[in-house]
Nucleic acid binder design. Sequence first.
DNA 1: GTTTTTGCAAAGAATTTGCAGCTTT
DNA 2: AAAGCTGCAAATTCTTTGCAAAAAC
Lengths: 160, 160
Amino acid sequence: MVLDPVEAERRLEAFKQACKAAGEKLTSQRLEIFKEIAASEEHPDAESVYRGVRARLPNVSLDTVYRTLWWLTKMGIVTTLGPTQDRTRFDANLTRHHHFVCIRCGLTRDFYSEELDRLVLPESVAAIGSIERTQVEVKGICHACARKEQADSRNLDGGS
Amino acid sequence: MVLDPVEAERRLEAFKQACKAAGEKLTSQRLEIFKEIAASEEHPDAESVYRGVRARLPNVSLDTVYRTLWWLTKMGIVTTLGPTQDRTRFDANLTRHHHFVCIRCGLTRDFYSEELDRLVLPESVAAIGSIERTQVEVKGICHACARKEQADSRNLDGGS
DNA sequence: GTTTTTGCAAAGAATTTGCAGCTTT
DNA sequence: AAAGCTGCAAATTCTTTGCAAAAAC
C-alpha cells in the first residue's frame, strides 16, 4: 500500500525538525531508513526495511538499520506493534478482555469493559478480512515505571 | 496477580475437554504448562512459563515449553499478544489509527474511524497507569488467507 | 502395542555490541 | 576539529529441530 505523497512529505519534514530540536545528527542512513517506514503502511520488520533501504544505499548494514529503528522509537517518531519489543507472550484469558501495556517495562494487564466489548467497527474493516475478535489496546506508563522515572529525573536535577 | 480459583478450575476443565475432543494426548507437561499460563493474568513469555513449571516438574525442558505453547495456540486455547509470532515490526504512522491483523500471515493494515478515536475507557484503567494512547486491534483472517484456506480444504475433501 | 511426545544437545534465526574509520555539525 | 554514527564481524539471545528413550492412548 502506497502512501499519499503529501502526507509522506509532511512526515519527512516532521522528522527533520525533530532531529534538529533534539540535537541529533541527520545522516543519509537515518533519512533513508525513516523514509522507508514512513512511506509505507505495511509496518515492516527490520529485515524488510534493510532490503528496501539497500536499493538506494547499497552499503547500509543490517545493524545500522536495527540501531536506527530503535533510535527512532526512542525519539518517539515510530512505535513498535504489539506489547513488547522482544519475546512472544502468551494469553490464556479466553474471556473478552482488553489490554493495558506499559511502554517502559512491558507489563501487560487485562481490564474489562462491557461497553468496549460492544464496539462497532467501521465498514472499511470488513474489506480487509473476516473479523475474529476485537480488543482495545491501551499503551501508557504503569505506576511503578512512572515513580522510577520521577526519581531518576530528581537525581539528574541534582536536588535543586 | 492471582486468579480466582473457581475460574482457574473452569479453565482447566475446558482444557481437558478440548484435548479429548481433538484426540490429543494429555501429558503432565502439557497440563502443568497450561496451568502456568491459565493461573495468571501476566501473559508470560516462554522463559517465565519454563521457570514456573520447573518448580513442579524439574525435568521439563525449555523446548517442550515452546512446543507446547505453540500447540496450545494452534488448539485455540491460548493466544499470543501482539500482531505476529516473530519479529518486531515498526509503525511510523503517527496519526490516530487502528489495526487489523491477520492471524494467519501477520498482514497488518491500518484503518481509521473517528468514532473509535473517541473511545471512553473505564476508570479501572487509570488505576494501572497513565494513558499515552489507545487503539483498537482487530484480529481476523485477511481475504488472501481465507481464499487459500478454502482452496486447501477443497483439496482435502478430494473434490467430492 | 502403537503412536506421540519429551529431553537432550546442537542448529538456526534474530538482534546486539566492540571497535576503528568516516560523516555531520 | 570534535562528537557521534557507521560498517564489519563476532557475540548474544531467542527459538526451533533431529533423534532415541519414555509416556499416553
